[in-house]
Amino acid sequence: MHLDHADNTYPPRHTYGAPRPYRPDGTRRALRIGLGGPVGSGKTATVAALCRVLRDQLSLAVVTNDIYTREDAEFLLRNAVLPPERITAVETGACPHTAIRDDISANLEAVEELEETVGPLDLILVESGGDNLTATFSKGLVDAQVFVIDVAGGDDIPRKGGPGVTTADLLVVNKTDLAPYVGSDLARMARDARAQRGELPVAFTSLVAEDGVRPITDWVRTCLAAWTAAPV
């Protein structure tokens, strides 16, 4: 008998794939929302702000995908937005988009382990490592995805499009407070985003403002309401 598998009972777990929206006991599993976007656009700050607002009303956990450090996880821990057992860091071998799209196995393990150890959970946020405009999450890993860009990255990003901007369930344009200083035209960004995304929603945020994350929390709450209302 080995210490690392002393427990020989088979804990019910999803055997593979995430599309099944149930826990093994038949109840609806946690909603999984992925947050992706370029480096420095404010993904971790957004996750932290979401946790602060939602943690008193929901059972929450976070998976971070750091590229070569544990900095994002440690930022969340240092800021004590959640207890440490609710934050898991996945290592991605220099390929953040692979871990959320092409080979999601490590992220699925992390998500399921969180449900097993601290669950039942209402919501799991999966934060991608900073990547480029083509990064998207596999539908096998998350139920909805948010793509976070910022005004300082250039106001032509919505026009450039790419899978993240075009297909994400929510596009967040962050750091709107900086727009006057970097010469970004918010109205143009909104117009371009609408042209690329049609009816899909766009949220303009400034996390330094009081309750600045509100547009995203509202969207998350809408997703959760739809998720819990869906027939099992």
């Binding site: 020989n8 088979y10 804990p11 777990r13 593979y16 196995s105 490590a106 699925l108 393990e109």
Partner: peptide, 28 residues
């Protein structure tokens, strides 16, 4: 850890009672 990740992919790709039995016996 890699064994468990491979198990997930393997059971989805080539379902087998032997894989199921090993997964049950070694959940970690």
């Amino acid at each position: 850890r890699l064994g468990r990740q491979l198990m997930r992919a393997a059971r989805a790709t080539w379902p087998s009672s032997e894989l199921d039995a090993l997964a049950a016996a070694r959940p970690r």
